[in-house]
Simulated scan of single mutants.
Amino acid sequence: MSKVLVLGGTSWLGGQIAHHAVMRGHDVTCLARGESGKTPSAVTFVHGDRDNPGAYDKVIDRRWDMVIDVSRQPGHVRSALDVLGKTSSHWTFVSTGSVYADQSGPLTERSPLLEPLAGDTASPETYGEGKVACEEAVRTHPHHLVIRVGLIGGPGDRSDRLGYYASRFALAQDEQVLVPDVATQPMQVIDVRDLAQWIVKLAESRVTGIVHGAGERTIVGDLLTMSAEAAGFEGDQVAASEDWLRARDVEEWMGPRSLPLWLPASHLGMGLMDDTRALEHGLERRSYAEMLADTLVYERDLGLDRERKAGLSRQDELDLIAELRS
Results as ranks from 00 to 15, higher is better:
Tyr298Asp: 15
Glu109Ala: 03
Ala310Trp: 05
Val189Ala: 00
Ala183Ile: 11
Leu113Tyr: 14
Arg308Gly: 07
Asp294Pro: 03
Lys201Tyr: 10
Phe45Met: 00
Tyr56Trp: 04
Ala137Glu: 05
Gly213His: 06
Gly311Ala: 05
Tyr298Cys: 07
Asp236Leu: 01
Gln73Cys: 07
Ala240Phe: 03
Asn52Lys: 15
Pro116Ile: 12
Gly9Asp: 01
Leu324Pro: 03
Ala203Ser: 09
Glu35His: 12
Glu323Gln: 15
His212Asp: 13
Glu299Ser: 15
Met1Trp: 12
Leu223Trp: 05
Ala196Asn: 01
Val99Cys: 05
Gly54Cys: 06
Ser88Phe: 02
Leu312Asp: 00
Gly97Ile: 02
Asp174Gly: 07
Ile210Glu: 14
Trp253Asp: 15
Glu242His: 03
Gln103Thr: 15
Val22Leu: 09
Val67Lys: 10
Ser89Cys: 12
Leu7Tyr: 03
Ala137Ile: 02
Ile210Met: 13
His212Asn: 15
Gly54Ala: 07
Thr140Ser: 14
Cys134Ile: 00
Leu81Val: 05
Arg325Ala: 06
Asp102Gln: 11
Arg217His: 11
Tyr127His: 01
Tyr127Thr: 02
Asp102Thr: 09
Gly150Gln: 12
Thr39Ser: 13
Val28Thr: 02
Gln188Asn: 13
Arg158Ser: 14
Gly153Trp: 10
Asp160Pro: 04
Gly255Lys: 03
Trp244Arg: 04
Gln197Asp: 15
Met226Ser: 13
Asp160Met: 02
Pro155Phe: 04
Arg286Leu: 07
His26Phe: 07
Leu117Gln: 00
Ala214Glu: 11
Leu263Glu: 14
Pro155Arg: 09
Thr184Gly: 13
Asp294Thr: 00
Phe233Gly: 04
Asp243Lys: 02
Ala196Ser: 07
Asp249Ile: 00
Tyr164Lys: 01
Trp262Pro: 12
Val146Trp: 08
Val59Glu: 01
Glu175Ile: 06
His19Ser: 06
Thr225Val: 13
Arg148Tyr: 02
Glu35Phe: 11
Ala122Trp: 03
Thr96Ser: 08
Gly269Glu: 05
Ala32Trp: 01
Phe169Arg: 08
Ala203Asn: 06
Glu234Trp: 08
Met254Trp: 01
Phe169Tyr: 14
Val211Arg: 11
Asp316Trp: 01
Glu307Val: 15
Leu268Phe: 07
Gln73Tyr: 12
Ile219Tyr: 02
Tyr100Gly: 01
Lys3His: 08
Arg193Met: 04
Ala55Gly: 01
Arg50Val: 11
Ser326Phe: 03
Ile321Ser: 00
Ile68Thr: 01
Gln173Asp: 00
Met226Glu: 15
Ala196Lys: 01
Met226Thr: 12
Trp64Thr: 05
Glu216Cys: 13
Asp157Tyr: 00
Ile321Gln: 04
Val83Pro: 08
Leu31Arg: 00
Ala21Val: 06
Ala183Ser: 14
Gly235His: 11
Tyr165Asp: 11
Asp194Pro: 07
Gln315Cys: 11
Phe169Asp: 04
Val182Leu: 09
Gly97Pro: 02
Asp191Ala: 01
Gln176Pro: 03
Arg306Tyr: 14
Leu304Cys: 08
Gly303Phe: 11
Glu252Ile: 09
